[in-house]
Each structure stands twice: as C-alpha cells, then as structure tokens.
Design a protein around this nucleic acid. Structure first.
Lengths: 192, 192
DNA sequence: TCATGCTGTCAAGGATGTTCAACAAGGACG
DNA sequence: CGTCCTTGTTGAACATCCTTGACAGCATGA
C-alpha cells in the first residue's frame, strides 16, 4: 500500500552502520522490540518514534523517504505544488522538495507587512541572491541597510550577517536562489 | 522534542489548498478528528496515517519534512543597475555583472510575445530553475513540453536539451537562477 | 426565529503502537 | 559438553493513536 518499504529501509541503514537492534534502540531511546517490529513491517511507527530512531543514525526524515519518489526527477511545478516552508508570518515556497543532489534552491518568498527574519542576524555558508517582484523590503547585510522595491535585487555571501524585514504596508514578494541548498541538512530552526 | 511542528505544517498545507479538515480526511481515508488532533499536535501520527493524508494533498513525505532542518562585493542592485543582456527580441537582466567567483547567476528575464530561444535546443553544464512572475511561457525540456503561468516553476539539469518560447500575446517575466554562472564573458550570442 | 449546513474541538472506547520480559539460535571459549 | 555473551523474535501488558458520535460556533436563508 504505502509503496515504500519502511522496514527494509530502516534495516539497511542500521546494518550499514553495523548497529544491532538493541544498540540502535538504546541510542534512540526506544526498545529493541520497536526496532524489530518496524523492520518486519509489523507496525507502522509513529512519526515521533521514527524520528527518534532516525536521529540516532543519524538520518533526516526527508532523507529517509528521499527514495520514495526518486522515480523521475520533476522538472515542472504548478504554483500550488511548491513546497511551503512557513513559520506563521513569514512564508517561503520552495521549487522542488529538498533534493539533496541539487546545487541550488529557488524560493518564492512572501513577506507580509511587519514580517521579519529576526533581530539575530542570519549567517550560514553559501551565497544567496534575489529579485523583488512586488512590494518593498528592507534588507540589512553586514551592517549596511537598504530598502529594495520592485525590480531591485541583491546578492551576497550568506556568511555575512543578514536580515530581511518588510517595513511597508503591503506584501512583499521576492524570488530568490541560494547555493548550496540551505533548506537542508543540519540542525536548528534555520531560515534562509 | 521533535523540533519540527508537524501540526502547523499540515495545517498550512491544508489551508493553502482551501480544504476543510473533513474534506481532507475524506480524501485521505481517515476521520476529521484525526486531522484535528494532528494539527493541534495532540498526537504524533503514525507514518501510515501521515502518508495517507499527505497523499491526499498531495505532498510527498520528504517534501513535508523538507523544512525540518532549515535555512566588499556589491550587495544591492537598483532595478536599473541590472546588467542587460538583450539580443533584440529576448531580454535578460543579470543581477550583478558577471563575477567569475560567484557560484550562481540570477536573472530577470523578459520574453515578449513570440520570443524563442531557438529551435536548436540549448544544452550546457550546470543546473537552472526559475519562477514565472507574469505572463505565460512554453518550456520544453528533454522532449517534454509544458506551459507555465504566473507562480509556476521549473528546475532541471541544463545538460538536458531545452527551449523557451512565449506563445502567448503578453510579455512573460521570469526570475531564474543558474549554476554555475553561464553568461560567460564578452557577450556573444550566449543564452542560459 | 428556527432550520440547515458548515466549521473545528473533544470524551470515550476500539484499534494500533510500544514496552517488558522471556525465548531460541548462533558464536566464542574453556 | 556447558557457560556466557550476543543476536533477532514474540506474547501479554501498557501507552498511544484513531474513530465514533457528540457538541458549540458561525454563517446562510427560509
């Protein structure tokens, strides 16, 4: 039914690391029985259990299921197919789910009035750039602050501390690209 | 615990599609209560349940969790500062003139009605992707042809033969990105 | 106003996932 | 051979998820 063999996939990942069911269970904070039952597809684990187990490998959930639709790489995306990555006020839409082997991510970003990536400046590896499609946005990079409007653009090394803020009273829409894909690996509730 | 807000994410995806809990539940083959409880993070759904629900959206599991791990060069560019690379009918505007050490180029592309990158399919190293900002465009990649409109997007390996054509009667505007930068030195009739 | 239909929430109990503890199979060593 | 350690599996008890069926809130309209 699921079309995706959770049990076998988990078993492969575990064995590749030379871990016993008990050892993995211990690291994950579950019991060996749980691992056994999952690997036999006797149960469909809860997301929380699966996450605990994958964290111990460690493998991200999206990685775990990455092969699920590897079938054919998708080229075209309808507007409503873009993967949404929001957190309440801010909202980004990703072209293509996280595909670990792609070298860029492209985003459709929506900043409602007042939206703010936060006072703690963002800093991470890679480069990013974009063009303002509508509205206006205040961008600070490495101490310099500018307000960009429709048609304006930016490009910088993401290691420079940066911040995005919509100080206008209309939505701001940006199309941007990052490299390497930053909605990706690694910890934390990272933006951008 | 999970560090990832499953409930809120599901709610966003559902609401973006204008589905009620009951309607989504019906399509997914679960009950509305299940959706409600998950959205409130009152439970951590089983993988099988989550998959049924996501299939109904439809969103792949890896996409669903894509945001899990989130995200003295010139930085800002006024619209009129973008370097124009036109050749009569077609017109691109580059964010930042070609800077060899950048790993991406970002383009504001204008396709007037009838614009066509040519019958000889383009093929070159790298990857490219973009989002349609206005108008519509016919894109062919590796034999497959689609018409994209406002908000739609694409992403593909540039080694696949590809072609862009505006078959509508209004301008088409796209924001795109390529890696590695492919608008090589010195003009020529280079396209992406 | 009352009926109707929609929305999302919640308590109770049945269904399913997880644990605890036992078990058998296999290898290492004396 | 027996002992000891490891491995993965399984039955019964417990915890959690899921469904049933109800409820209140809000809108539309007779």
């Amino acid at each position: 039914m699921s079309g995706f063999d959770v049990g076998t996939r988990l078993k492969q990942l575990r064995q590749r690391r030379d871990l016993s069911q008990r050892e993995l269970a211990k690291r994950a904070g579950v019991t060996n029985s749980t691992i056994s039952l999952i690997e036999q597809n006797s149960v469909s684990p809860s997301v929380s259990s699966l996450k605990k187990i994958l964290d111990a490998l460690p493998v991200s959930i999206s990685e775990f299921f990455a092969g699920e639709e590897l079938a054919s790489e998708q080229v075209f995306y309808r507007a409503e197919e873009l993967t949404e990555i929001g957190d309440g006020t801010l909202s980004w839409r990703l072209v293509g789910a996280r595909r670990p082997n792609r070298s860029m991510s492209i985003l459709h970003e929506y900043y409602p009035p007042g939206a703010d990536t936060g006072e703690d400046m963002l800093e991470h590896a890679g480069e990013e750039g974009g063009i303002v499609v509508s509205g206006s946005i205040e961008i600070s990079v490495n101490g310099e602050t500018r307000v960009l409007t429709r048609g304006d653009a930016y490009y910088f090394d993401s290691r420079l501390p940066h911040r995005f803020r919509n100080i206008g009273d209309t939505d701001c829409v940006i199309v941007s690209a990052n490299t390497p894909p930053s909605f990706a690996e690694g910890g934390g509730t990272q933006h951008h």
